[in-house]
Design a protein around this nucleic acid. Structure first.
Length: 409
DNA sequence: TTAGCAATAT
DNA sequence: TATATTGCTA
């Protein structure tokens, strides 16, 4: 019953504690017979190698285990070789020089203490193994960065010498086990994702979000692209530049000018364009309920952007806004649509038509009175297409718009 | 992503 | 001053 060796049993009671390398070597050093010593070393090495094969599948998750195992294997193999070659004991004594002291002082010590003692035991000639072991312990923390890793890897490789290359942990050379750490560094990755786009000699950092906005340029106009770039600049800087880069006053001015030059061209709302705009509004039930996107889709104008429609709609609403007293519902907006697609609020129209002759350039009469009452619009009722004014598209539509306070005062 | 508003530029 | 653009916020 109790004949089963603890290592072979499934007994995980505290009585079975895996030996440390130093403990094992300590035991081995007590063996006087060299062949026995070597065989025991080899057996341990085999077990270590077997262990290594087991965790090989998890080498990414257990890089340090691989490292430790590999170092142990290498050390034990070296020990075995030296035992065989010399056929004498001192090697082991040198490998675990603390043996005697340990026996005198403590029964057990942890690896760090071992390392310290080994360092002090520098009068031994074979200090290679000691250093090796020391590095084995100290290398534990060196996976953090690529630089560190490569340096330690190089260090280990150079120390390991050629004979051990076949035993070396294959992971370590490729650093695959450590790549995930780098990949998961969100900030670092984001930093790399940033693109530096020169805009008139100015480098703008554009985050991906803004790039998405630029993609809308395919459906929008070229001008919207320029807006995307210019608008992204301040955001990009504020978002990603953790370290402020002080600019001189002159540089700031330059930057300002360059941003201004990147400003999109003004969209000229031609009468035809505006007519389509109004038509779309009518179909959508009025300016208060129509949304820029809907309007743009209805207008079916290539290159027209939502921003432009939105802006125009804003202006339109401003002009057609009725006095609060007479406002019943937003949809009940009375809009005077002039012949060439011009518009003004009904208030404005009434005021301007009732007396002011100052509007000498006023269009040829009220060509269309479109009253939007909720959804009861007449999409096809834009007879303005047939108006006289429709042929006068050269008119500056601005001149037809009622200017409150100018004509009526 | 979009709409709306306000500030700013032209 | 009128209009368009841009920035910001919900």
């Amino acid at each position: 019953m109790g004949s089963v060796p603890p290592e072979l049993s499934l007994d995980f009671r505290p009585t079975f504690v895996p030996k440390t390398i130093s403990t094992f070597l300590k035991e081995v050093s007590l063996i006087g017979n060299v062949p026995d010593k070597v065989s025991k070393l080899d057996a341990f090495v085999k077990r270590l190698e077997e262990e290594m094969r087991k965790i090989d599948a998890f080498k990414r998750e257990l890089p340090l285990c691989m490292l430790l195992l590999n170092d142990a294997i290498v050390a034990l193999k070296e020990e075995s070789v030296q035992c065989m070659s010399r056929n004498v004991e001192p090697v082991l004594e040198e490998f675990i020089p603390l043996k005697n002291k340990k026996e005198n002082n403590q029964s057990e010590e942890d690896g760090a203490l071992i390392t310290n003692k080994k360092e002090k035991d520098s009068n031994n000639n074979n200090c290679n193994n000691n250093k090796d072991k020391k590095n084995w312990m100290s290398s534990v923390q060196l996976w953090n960065t690529d630089d560190d890793y490569s340096s330690i890897s190089h260090k280990l490789d150079s120390k390991r010498k050629d004979g051990d290359s076949s035993q070396g942990c294959k992971n370590r050379g490729t650093a695959t086990a450590f790549t995930p750490f780098k990949m998961n560094l969100g900030f670092a990755v984001r930093k790399e994702e940033k693109e530096e786009i020169p805009v008139h000699g100015l480098t703008l950092l554009t985050p991906g979000i803004k790039n998405l906005k630029e993609e809308s340029c395919s459906t929008g106009s070229r001008t919207s692209c320029s807006r995307a770039v210019s608008s992204s600049a301040p955001n990009a800087q504020s978002t990603f530049r953790s370290v402020p880069q002080p600019l001189s006053h002159h540089q700031q001015q330059q930057q300002q000018q360059q941003q201004q030059t990147a400003r999109k061209q003004r969209r000229c709302w031609s009468p035809e364009l505006h007519r389509r705009f109004v038509n779309a509004l009518q179909q959508l039930g009025g300016s208060q309920v129509a949304t820029p996107k809907q309007i743009r889709e209805l207008m079916q104008v290539d290159g027209l952007t939502n921003d432009e429609v939105k802006s125009h709609l804003q202006k339109y609403r401003l002009h057609t806004r009725r006095l609060p007293a007479s406002t019943t519902s937003p949809a009940n907006q009375s809009v005077v649509v002039l012949g060439s697609g011009l518009w003004m609020s009904q208030d404005q129209y009434e005021e301007s038509s009732k007396g002011s002759s100052s509007q000498s350039g006023s269009p040829q009469g009220p060509l269309q009175l479109a009253t939007n009452t909720g959804g009861t619009s007449n999409p096809g009722g834009d007879s303005m297409e047939d108006d006289e004014d429709a042929k006068s598209e050269s008119y500056s539509w601005k001149s037809h718009i009622h200017k409150p306070g100018k004509d009526d005062v």
